[in-house]
Design a protein around this nucleic acid. Sequence first.
DNA 1: TATCTATTTAGAAATATTTCTAAATACTTT
DNA 2: AAAGTATTTAGAAATATTTCTAAATAGATA
Lengths: 90, 90
Amino acid sequence: MSFGQTFKALSDPVRREILTLLRAGRMSAGEIGSHFDMTGATISYHLSILKKADLVHESKYKNYIYYELNTSVVEELMAWLSHLKGGNES
Amino acid sequence: MSFGQTFKALSDPVRREILTLLRAGRMSAGEIGSHFDMTGATISYHLSILKKADLVHESKYKNYIYYELNTSVVEELMAWLSHLKGGNES
DNA sequence: TATCTATTTAGAAATATTTCTAAATACTTT
DNA sequence: AAAGTATTTAGAAATATTTCTAAATAGATA
């Protein structure tokens, strides 16, 4: 994991909204796309960025590809920020 | 504050290192620049991004401009990530 | 097997980011 | 006031990002 890649992934509003959607649970690419006024190709591009940043995992079932949040990376990010903030040197 | 702006600011390795330097305390622009193999103009550019993201504050003294971390924004970021991770709905 | 549906990949256009050099600003010291 | 030091601003070049359309892939159903 690279913090740069992860923060960059989080810098885009579409990707942050995708992650927020995934809070509710796993969702197919098409279902995710239906929440946005963009082509499926563009959503696929954003999902690939989130995937590279390891912020989501994918799994296939039938014709669909389902995405879900990977919270462990979110925790690493929080740890980095916590360190930056100082104090707890854990 | 905009999360997009803040995450984008954090996505660059130079800017993350500047923030890490500032953990030790306030530092002048030139002092910050001396840690990097870049022109002062480029450092100034990165500082302006960090400033717009409200991740640093500046104060002037004599001929110098001093920068220091603004930890409150770091905390807001952590709160957003914590919410994403789910669980504590505080 | 042929076709339909879901998703990704490729390629291109528009926009944004990062870096530099050169010049401008601002404050200090002589 | 003049010269020096610290920093920023402007403009330009190289690179990266975001979006689209069109085509490709993969799996499901008729």
